[in-house]
Write a protein that binds this DNA or RNA. Sequence first.
DNA 1: GGAGGCCTACTCGGATACTGATTGTCCGAGTGTTCGAGG
DNA 2: CCTCGAACACTCGGACAATCAGTATCCGAGTAGGCCTCC
Lengths: 156, 156
Amino acid sequence: MRMGQGVEWALHCCLNLAWTGTPVPASRLAALYDLPPAYLNKQLQALVRAGLCESVPGPRGGFRLARPPGEVSLLDVVVALEGPEDAFRCTSILAAGPGGDPGADYPDTCAISLSMRRAELAWRRELAARSLADVSDDVLRHTPGAADRVRDALTA
Amino acid sequence: MRMGQGVEWALHCCLNLAWTGTPVPASRLAALYDLPPAYLNKQLQALVRAGLCESVPGPRGGFRLARPPGEVSLLDVVVALEGPEDAFRCTSILAAGPGGDPGADYPDTCAISLSMRRAELAWRRELAARSLADVSDDVLRHTPGAADRVRDALTA
DNA sequence: GGAGGCCTACTCGGATACTGATTGTCCGAGTGTTCGAGG
DNA sequence: CCTCGAACACTCGGACAATCAGTATCCGAGTAGGCCTCC
């Protein structure tokens, strides 16, 4: 069960965009961390499709946050890149077993499926409760100059 | 972020093994749900390597639970098949950024990594708190005859 | 000197290859059972 | 009738393909800014 690499990139990029405010091209964000520019661009496109970012074409263009950092949760970013479906997939194999009912809604009744979903719900709840602003606060408490350094590097 | 199909199979099989007690060959478990026998066998081998199941070769052989159902958590099964590492992988991309320290332990200090790990911890906690015996109780409360039906189908 | 238009450079966006993990299959090693022969 | 032994059938176990999601790259569409020309 591996999460895509793009999630890490997108989270850092979103935090940086929250610090700059102005549009930043994907190529510049990629240069910050030595990432493949075109592939990072692809990930950011997913954020645009999810409504988290806005893209500006042409010179002086790039990506910027579509909402205030306090209104963007970590879950929003994860869902934008990994999709809304659960990691655990109930394929209703019980339907083929003894006493199985082909018409039953096993994802919503099977005890195993419900237990797995409850666990994922706890995971989602934690991610939804943490916004970019919260993370920014944590970072700046530990490294006050981080935002300025990133702003300088991205807007130079 | 997809979890392997084998997790669902293994969870159902473990529950069934808890109900039978005696060794059951993989081919018979596979026949219950119309699963590919050899592939299911492969998944069960992982459970053996993790110490959750014991395998008995030869006729009358098969797999059986190595511990009482109350001592096997859903997390044990998931970890046995998906591995112990987190879904979110911190690759320390901050080390290449402005003010980055190549010697720093970013997985343990980066605010983003910590937030993601906290969420996964909540997920693990839920899974660890739920044993096969708990799930069995839920199933039998809803469908009292399930264990008997499975026992009959597997030991026939 | 100012205004208008063209040209360039830069951006995103989607279509297109490549890689590794997941899924699926096969055959060999080992073991308990069973059947038969011999005492 | 009991004991011993060999052949057999059945099991797991790991080695070997196929398929698919994730990874990475490239080129085209569109736009803002800059520059040159003309008035």
